[in-house]
Computed example of a mutant assay.
Amino acid sequence: MKLITWLSRIFIFVALAVFASNNTQLITLQYYFDKSIELPLSVALLIFFAAGALIAAVVVRCRCHTD
């Protein structure tokens, strides 16, 4: 079972690495008051994925402690 888990982790890592290397175009994120920043698409997706995972973890943790 551990072998299957590690193989799936390696597969996901390789797939994400290939995705990141194919999406190196710069995008512009616009903020308030005409502020902006340019990032590669893969970095922006990683940031927003991590933020979503963090928010979900906080919500689940808060729900578990209210019971």
Rank of each mutant, 00 (worst) to 15 (best):
K2G: 13
I4V: 09
I4E: 07
T5E: 08
T5G: 03
T5H: 06
W6S: 00
L7A: 04
L7P: 01
L7I: 04
S8F: 03
S8K: 04
S8I: 02
I10S: 01
F11R: 05
I12Y: 09
I12N: 08
I12T: 08
I12M: 09
F13C: 06
F13D: 03
F13G: 01
A15Y: 07
A15M: 13
L16N: 04
L16F: 06
L16M: 12
L16Y: 04
A17P: 04
A17R: 02
V18Y: 02
V18P: 00
V18A: 06
F19C: 02
A20V: 08
A20D: 14
S21C: 09
S21F: 14
S21M: 12
N22E: 05
N22T: 06
N22H: 02
N22M: 08
N23L: 06
T24L: 07
Q25R: 03
Q25Y: 01
I27C: 01
I27W: 01
T28V: 10
T28P: 03
L29P: 03
Y31N: 02
Y31E: 01
Y31D: 00
Y32R: 12
Y32D: 09
Y32M: 07
Y32T: 09
Y32Q: 13
F33P: 00
F33D: 10
F33H: 12
F33E: 13
F33T: 07
F33N: 13
D34F: 13
K35G: 01
K35V: 01
S36P: 05
S36D: 09
S36V: 02
S36E: 14
I37N: 05
I37V: 15
I37H: 04
I37E: 13
E38Q: 15
E38M: 15
L39A: 06
L39T: 09
L39F: 12
L39I: 11
L39G: 07
P40T: 07
S42I: 13
S42A: 15
S42Y: 15
V43W: 11
V43G: 03
V43N: 11
V43F: 13
V43T: 15
A44G: 06
L45P: 00
L45Q: 03
L46E: 03
L46Y: 11
L46S: 13
L46R: 01
L46N: 06
I47N: 05
I47W: 10
I47V: 15
F48M: 06
F48P: 00
F48R: 02
F48T: 06
F48E: 07
F49W: 13
F49H: 06
F49C: 12
F49G: 13
A50D: 05
A50L: 15
A50S: 14
A51K: 12
A51R: 12
A51V: 14
G52C: 07
G52D: 04
G52N: 12
A53V: 08
L54M: 12
L54D: 09
I55C: 00
I55L: 07
A56L: 05
A56D: 08
A56F: 08
A57M: 09
A57D: 10
V58L: 14
V58Y: 14
V58C: 10
V59D: 09
V59I: 14
V59F: 11
V60W: 08
V60A: 13
R61H: 10
R61W: 11
R61G: 08
C62K: 15
C62I: 09
C62F: 12
R63K: 07
R63V: 09
R63N: 14
C64D: 10
C64R: 14
H65M: 07
H65Q: 13
H65A: 11
H65Y: 06
T66Y: 10
T66G: 05
T66C: 05
D67T: 04
D67F: 05
